[in-house]
Design a protein around this nucleic acid. Structure first.
Lengths: 192, 192
DNA sequence: ATTTTTTATTGATTTTCGTCAATGCCATTT
DNA sequence: AAATGGCATTGACGAAAATCAATAAAAAAT
């Protein structure tokens, strides 16, 4: 149980047996079927989810009903509406399962207690958010400074597994494009 | 000395006198004239800078020589090429002063020692990076899901002080637009 | 004081991307 | 086996933004 979670944890900062046992008490497993929501816009985000298995996405919906994917969550990644989680304000994102998924949930109270009780958990949290920040900064840089082809190439190189598993219109959404435009970008690249 | 730095620090997590004295020993002041570089692409980023006074920007330059601003740094903000700082890889961003500036530098070794010695510094760091992450996520969401006018309105509301002090072509660059396009967006908005 | 540099605006044109619509394909479901 | 729904592709068209170029205004340097 929670194998991948603790593998990732120990990669960042290694825990003793006792510490693992302590942390385990604060975790809750959850299974999600494809298309099921983990969080809906307007609800308060009650937990951070670690993906043990499967795939999720976080997305917003605009007035026209278009979905905009802000984040994917595959095995080994964390996913949540962090702002809602930390502030207790209504979520602005929806999160649902792209594939059947197994999650490890960390509730708000668990998160806060672990931060207080276990310094290594704070380090774990800091390293996680730092990694997420750096990844997002790369994404932002590529959006404001690269051509579509370069951006798509970058995406393929960075997340080859996502390209395999996720429908292309979702990748288009993640890139801020229409499915048609992404399809045409791909055609151009194939011709070379 | 370092007044704003400690004000911001204490807002996040309050320090005792002794702790402040300890932290002070790890800080270095630095003044920068307008247009001076704090960091150039290709160099290793040796420190995180806290802006006590003035304004800076971090930006990349593409093959065509166009500059793309990834971040502004005004009073009270931190600025650096975090990836380079943490990994010791060559920086991909340039950082320079938009106005004469006074900085507080935290070197790599200072950062690491403070993380080890002072748990409150780790908390300070965690809260800073979390805030930066949330701000960037908002920016990204607005890029992939809003119209230009909405995005510019959002920028004005979020950073009215930047609009006052920074040339518009830099704001265009931050938004991933040409100066001409931003100028036209503004005209449209004025007409309403 | 005048020259230079930086900045913002405007117009004409081209390129890029979104929109709308139709088609075909594949995978489920019935 | 047939029907359905989700998905990717393609074409025609229009809208949005980039590019190129000229001008003017403001700020900085001499």
């Amino acid at each position: 149980m929670y194998e991948l979670f603790f593998r990732k944890f120990n990669e960042k900062i290694s825990l003793t047996e006792e510490e693992e046992t302590l942390v385990k008490q604060y975790l809750t497993p959850k299974k999600l079927r494809k298309k099921q929501y983990l969080l809906q816009e307007g609800d308060i985000c009650k937990s951070i989810a670690f993906v043990e298995k499967g795939a999720l996405r976080a997305y917003s919906v605009d007035e026209k009903g278009n979905e905009h994917i802000i984040q994917f969550g595959l095995e080994g990644w964390l996913i949540s509406d962090l702002y809602s989680f930390l502030s207790n304000e209504p979520a602005t994102y929806n999160i649902d399962a792209i594939e059947d998924a197994e999650l490890v949930l960390i509730s708000k109270s668990a998160h806060e207690e672990l931060l207080r009780k276990l310094p290594k958990y704070e380090t774990f949290t800091r390293l996680n958010i730092t990694g997420a920040y750096l990844a997002m900064q790369k994404r932002l840089t590529s959006i404001i400074s690269s051509t579509l082809e370069e951006r798509y190439m970058g995406f393929i190189n960075l997340y080859p597994n996502i390209v395999q598993r996720v429908p292309q219109h979702m990748i288009a959404s993640y890139m801020g494009l229409t499915p048609e435009t992404l399809s045409r970008v791909r055609q151009k690249m194939i011709r070379k």
